[in-house]
Design a protein around this nucleic acid. Sequence first.
DNA 1: TGCGACCTAGTTTTT
DNA 2: CTAGGTCGCA
Length: 654
Amino acid sequence: MDVLKGLNPSQVEAVLETEGPVIVLAGAGSGKTKAIVHRIAYLLDGGISERRVLAVTFTNKAAGEMRARTISMVGAAAETVWLCTFHSLCARILRVHIDKLKPIAGRQPYRQGFSIYDDDDRKQLLSDCIKNLGLDLSAESLKMARRWVSYAKLRGLEPEQLEARLAGDGQGRFARVYEQYLTRTAASNAVDFDDLLSLTLRLFDENQEVLSIYQDRFEYCMVDEFQDTNRIQYELMKRIVGKHRNLFVVGDDDQSIYAFRGADLRNILDFEKDFPDAKIIHLGQNYRSTKSILSTACSLISKNLARKKKELFTENIAGQKVELCTCGTELAEAEFVCQEIQMLRKGGDPDLSTTAVFYRTNAQSRAVEDVLVRCNMPYKIVRGLRFYERKEVRDVIAYLKASVNPDDDIALLRTINVPPRGIGKVSLDLIADEAHGSGCSLFAAVGRLKDSAAVRPALRAKLTSFHALIAALRESASAAQRPSEFINHLLCETGYLEFLLESAEGEEKTRAENVKELASVAKAFEQKHPGASVEDFAHHIALLTDLDEFDERESPVSLLTLHSAKGLEFDVVFIIGVEKGFLPHYSIRTIEQFEEERRLLYVGMTRAKKRLILTRAFRRMTFGRTTMNPESPFIDEIPAELIARRAFYGDNLL
DNA sequence: TGCGACCTAGTTTTT
DNA sequence: CTAGGTCGCA
């Protein structure tokens, strides 16, 4: 059969084992995506309707790649398979059914057309809640608040339950923050990323009818990167496969590096307990790396205690030894990397066409960037400042959201004085009080105050024109306008583009360009979804990140954190800062965290196909202070004969 | 309201 | 060191 061509026996097994629970333990570079893609193709080939198949991944990018590969195998039928991220799956379900959630006393029920709050919106709202409650508004307490809110949502806790959990620790105040946060998101008809998951789970548990729709529909369910799922995501999948139990998960416990974000390694370690009849398939053959690289990485990861025993092997050539270069300073380290890349380039080996530099923290990229710029070497930095995190982009998105969801207070707050309209803090407090007093949205409050005799005329005029502006935007958003047209319309009408250009002094030009870039994102969206409304676009954009756009093949040198390296591969990989303090990071406390750091290094190493070069700096400036970091203890765990040691003190040619 | 001086904190972050 | 946030003054 065609779909089995080019697969090894374990992969074939993973494809053919379609009924019942299956867990695939797929080592790094063992072709797990291939296995999933072929499995989907096999199902469709065998006459299973594409409506019956659900495949969930973690990033839009991974989903997109999987879709492209499936389409190339089975053709257009794959276009309509639900191949999505957990968040987009949930968003899609909630878009239809959110109003069927049981209402909760004291909180407004959710309704169609809800907004999605990202982490920044959440932060904004949380600090506002903290302020409102008259609590300590330090960075520390904001961090705690975020932590506890996430904690509660992950476990489906209501404020009272969180209170009970926290009271003993004298942290009860965070339960009140949580309560207010819930009330206010509900009032704004907004859900955050955690809500997407937890509300869907709640919906399933409250409403058997809705659950049945999906249970009956999705007969074959697959989850990629299973080691990164959190408890809720796992529960969601368990609900969906409740009837037929055709759950196929692929993961690698050794590549779990997101515990700090709630990923729960127990999901993968305990899968067999939840599904005692689960088939277990090992994908142990690595197709990516040389023997040298693989054995180095394996000797490291074998030191982890909390892992499933497994052996990886490869039929690839031995290749060059992994290198470790000790450099004088972080600048010398950067020079070394640059020089080494230049040498590889001069060699002109077409096999070494992609190169990446990995680091533990974003700040480490600086020295490397400096040197690369001075050497005129083109490079691409992955998520230095994300496109969608830029202030100007967020401002425009806020306008977009405000134009679509009349209750979205956070969006309104963001837009109200940008560009400056003379509506400052005092006026804002007035509006907030009015909204609070009459239990309406901020926008409605603006509407009331603009006609209120109690407000001074100057402010009334400002409010009137702002109110008219937003009302007009709403009008044209719901008129059948194309999203990209609407963005352009919005940029003019609000005076935002003018505002950007006015304050422009050289670099600010890029701001205007960024904003226009958003219009082209809208254009691309239109082409993909003909006839899509402004509202559709607003919903779509809430789940986008620009890692989705990253194409590791297009630039010769990529700079990225170890975390964002996951799922990618490069011919040549440099990992810089292999020092105690960075790897493991100085902040780690527990043995679990220590093992996660080890996995992080392992993930980085296993991205390399041909060459792997580790570097460390003897002396390094951190926070304006010179520190001397010893070598990473992880190096000691690798047999010395696997590593070729070098030194580079830098001749400061640059 | 807005700007500039001062202070403080400083991991990783698929959505 | 440097970016982001706060505070105080004009």
